[in-house]
Nucleic acid binder design. Structure first.
Length: 364
DNA sequence: TAAACGTGGTA
DNA sequence: TTACCAAGTTT
């Protein structure tokens, strides 16, 4: 009979190797009774959904500097929050972040509920995030099951059923290991273990605090687990993007619809994105010049290639779509990455055009 | 249940 | 360059 893995083994490891994160309370401080700010835990957990710690750090810093409490965030303007989230991806998270903040203020007086069940009723908070907040912020014995935990459990118990079928089984295994003592640190310990030791490729089994009871290590199958169903190939979609610059330097942009891809974000007017060449529907008649290079970007489920057209627009231009953003109010960092790539190409196009104009007029 | 939904890092 | 991967949720 093989020994069962013990939570105390990785709690001891976590005491020595916990990763330092701005939203975290160290194991030592936690033992002294300190708890993290539920707002910081919630904000960081939403940002961390399908996202790396490295990518989140800067965003977390800027959000908490600008909106220190959930009440501050609830009072923010939608466009400001979307702009601050730009570049982090999965923009439904930002829209739900605002909805959640406003619900916490309206229904809970600005204090997050402390049970996973109530947390899971809030916008943008699913089973994982509800358990994470309950455990980390309130030290409730909730079981977090993220990609790390799935991988660690699959290896510990040599589960060969592929995901997502194995999800229920892996969840039950994780629940059986969750301790009553230090559940918050335990949740973070398993995730740190998955992120630094029990990694997807080349796991460091030799230094793993759970190497003794790990069944996949014994079987030599750890690097092959968890198994996953094959993914579908990504189709290529194409489209046109129009970057118009008014004579006073203002840019023609539009706010995308709240639902769907890049919902609620700023973008350039353009065509549909489809697998066949779509119609060119320019936002207003102008001398649109197509650039030689396409903007390429890969989303979760398709590759995108955008032909970029640029034009100088008169000061009295009346576009059918979008609105002009004054030169000094426009920040490329407010755009989602796909749109920022379009702008980078357009900027080069305008620069070449400007240089050409200077030569033409003999003032170069 | 399956598909939609971003991005940057890495092999 | 391509494909996979990362602290998931919503519809």
């Amino acid at each position: 009979m093989r020994d069962m893995p013990q939570s105390k083994d990785i709690l001891a490891w976590y005491d020595r190797h916990a990763r330092d994160m701005p939203w975290r309370v160290s194991p030592a401080d936690r033992r002294a009774g300190k708890r993290p700010d539920p707002y910081a835990v919630w904000l960081s957990e939403v940002m961390l959904q399908q996202t790396t710690v490295a990518a989140v750090r800067g965003y977390f810093h800027r959000f908490t500097l600008r909106w220190p409490t959930v009440s501050d965030l609830a009072a923010a303007e939608d466009t400001q929050v979307m702009a601050e989230w730009a570049g982090l991806g999965y923009y439904a998270r930002a829209r739900n972040l605002l909805k959640c903040a406003r619900t916490v203020v309206a229904d809970y007086g600005g204090r997050f509920p402390d049970s996973a069940d109530k947390l899971a009723d809030l916008p943008g908070i699913g089973p994982y995030t509800a358990a994470a907040i309950a455990a980390i912020a309130f030290d409730r014995p909730a079981t977090v099951v993220d990609g790390n935990v799935e991988r660690v459990m699959a290896r510990l118990f040599d589960v060969v059923t592929p995901l997502p079928t194995a999800k229920r089984e892996l969840t039950q295994l994780a629940e059986a290991l969750t301790p009553q003592d230090r559940p918050g640190d335990y949740a973070q310990a398993v995730m740190d273990l998955g992120a630094t030791i029990c990694t997807p490729r080349n796991p460091a089994c030799g230094i793993c605090p759970w190497r003794a009871p790990c069944q996949a290590r014994a079987a030599g199958t750890a690097p092959d687990l968890p198994r996953k169903l094959p993914k579908k190939a990504k189709p290529v979609r194409v489209g046109y993007a129009y970057v118009g610059r008014r004579a006073d330097g203002a840019w023609l942009l539009e706010r995308r619809p709240d639902s769907g891809l890049l919902g609620g974000m700023l973008g350039w007017p353009g065509s549909e994105w489809s697998e066949v060449q779509p119609d060119r529907n320019q936002p207003l008649p102008a001398d649109w010049q197509m650039l030689g290079e396409e903007a390429r970007h890969t989303f979760t489920h398709f590759h995108l290639r955008l032909k970029v057209l640029i034009a100088e627009l008169p000061i009295d231009a009346k576009p059918d779509r979008g609105h002009f953003v004054p030169r000094h109010e426009f920040r490329p960092a407010d755009l989602p990455t796909a749109m920022r790539k379009v702008f980078d190409l357009a900027r080069s196009g305008f620069a070449a055009e400007d240089a050409g104009t200077v030569e033409d007029t003999g003032h170069g």
